[in-house]
């Protein structure tokens, strides 16, 4: 069977004009237009460009929601198996439009999508997680190479072939880590890499160092004696028996437990289920991780007004950062609604 492909391009590549016509609204034509000819040739009959959707770059950029909706309707009318957009090279508005229409078609029409952009095109940062973006040179001089690599990837996606790594397939990665078996062991790769580094040769790390987010500190507490303080922990302290089945590592949820009747955590009422440390001390006296006993004493002494009635608990070991961030957002929201003024969070 021949797969049905729709091609998205801008007014310039459709031959409608340059900047002067960048405000043209979306239009749809049967068959190929402009670079679609080369695309069609490269597909070698395995897939056919059945239609082309064209939109002015300024129109798309200035009316994104509207332009997206209009283009999606036109694409949908062709009943395609795939959308190919661009290449957009280093054209900013065109690149964003290519990324946006691909992301939308993937999400709304459930079809695979491919575009091609220069690495620094703003469309890359915005959409690389939502579509396959083949990396191109910065100008249309690289058209043939870009189209050829787009077609290779497009046909694999259409045939649902198993894809290799982003590096191997030649697209800009979608921010997902996946395990693969290499040809060499980790030890051999490590020694190879070290020798290159020592010799001053180029080497490719297998994981770039991440940049962690920072935020401005919240304003301090003005009068401690009037505040409600909540306790949280990622140290795996839970009511005995782990009623919420929180995982010993790679936690996917947190627990919220009412401690309003408790003065002290003991080996009878609470326990540690954390998979990452020797739990002997924490099981003997969970207060060494979640300091309820002294908090109660200091509450009674009037150091602060009130200990919040609920503690929030999860395990931090092997827990994906994205999950931990999600827990933080959910807990933060609840604490805010409950009128809590400050938090003490303990981690192991």
């Amino acid at each position: 069977m021949t797969y049905r492909v729709v091609h998205y391009i801008n007014q310039f590549y459709a031959g409608m004009g340059g900047e002067d016509t960048a405000h043209v609204p979306p239009s749809s034509r049967d068959g190929i237009v402009g670079p679609g000819l080369q695309l069609q040739n490269l597909l070698q009959g395995e897939a056919e460009v059945i239609g082309t959707v064209i939109c002015g770059d300024s129109y798309y950029g200035e009316n994104m929601e509207k332009a997206q909706a209009e283009c999606i309707e036109m694409i949908k009318a062709f009943k395609p198996d795939m959308l190919i957009a661009g290449p957009g090279f280093n054209a900013g508005r065109y690149g964003v439009a290519c990324g946006d229409i691909c992301a939308a078609a993937g999400e709304m029409l459930g079809i695979p999508t491919v575009t091609a952009l220069y690495g620094e095109n703003p469309g890359v940062e915005m959409y690389h997680k939502k579509t396959y973006i083949v990396e191109t040179s910065d100008s249309a001089r690289g058209m043939r190479d870009a189209l050829s690599r787009m077609v290779t990837l497009a046909l694999k996606l259409l045939k649902k072939e198993k894809l290799g790594t982003a590096r191997f397939e030649g697209y800009i990665h979608r921010g997902i880590r996946k395990s693969f078996f290499h040809e060499k062991s980790g030890a051999e790769r490590g020694v190879d890499m070290l020798l290159k580094k020592i010799r001053g040769e180029a080497f490719e790390t297998e994981l770039e160092m991440p940049v962690f987010k920072k935020i401005d500190p919240a304003a301090p507490i003005a009068d401690l004696s009037k505040v409600t303080i909540a306790l949280c922990t990622s140290g795996g302290i839970v009511p005995f028996g782990n009623p919420d089945h929180i995982r010993v590592s790679s936690a996917e949820k947190f627990g919220k437990y009412n401690i309003s009747e408790l003065k002290d955590l003991t080996s009878e009422n609470y326990e540690s289920i954390h998979g990452g440390y020797d739990r002997v001390y924490a099981n003997d006296n969970p207060d060494v991780v979640l300091p309820l006993d002294i908090m109660r004493e200091m509450e009674k002494e009037g150091v602060f007004a009130k200990l919040h009635d609920f503690v929030y608990c999860t395990t931090g070991t092997g827990t994906a950062v994205a999950n931990a961030e999600g827990f933080g957002q959910a807990i933060g929201k609840e604490l805010k609604e409950a009128g809590v003024d400050a938090v003490i969070l303990t981690s192991t």
Partner: peptide, 19 residues
């Protein structure tokens, strides 16, 4: 987790941990 609580609730979060 600590950062997101502080951001979401807009209240000071003190973290006690070893590392």
């Amino acid at each position: 987790m600590v950062r997101e609580i502080e951001k979401e609730a807009g209240i000071p979060v003190v973290q006690i941990a070893t590392i």
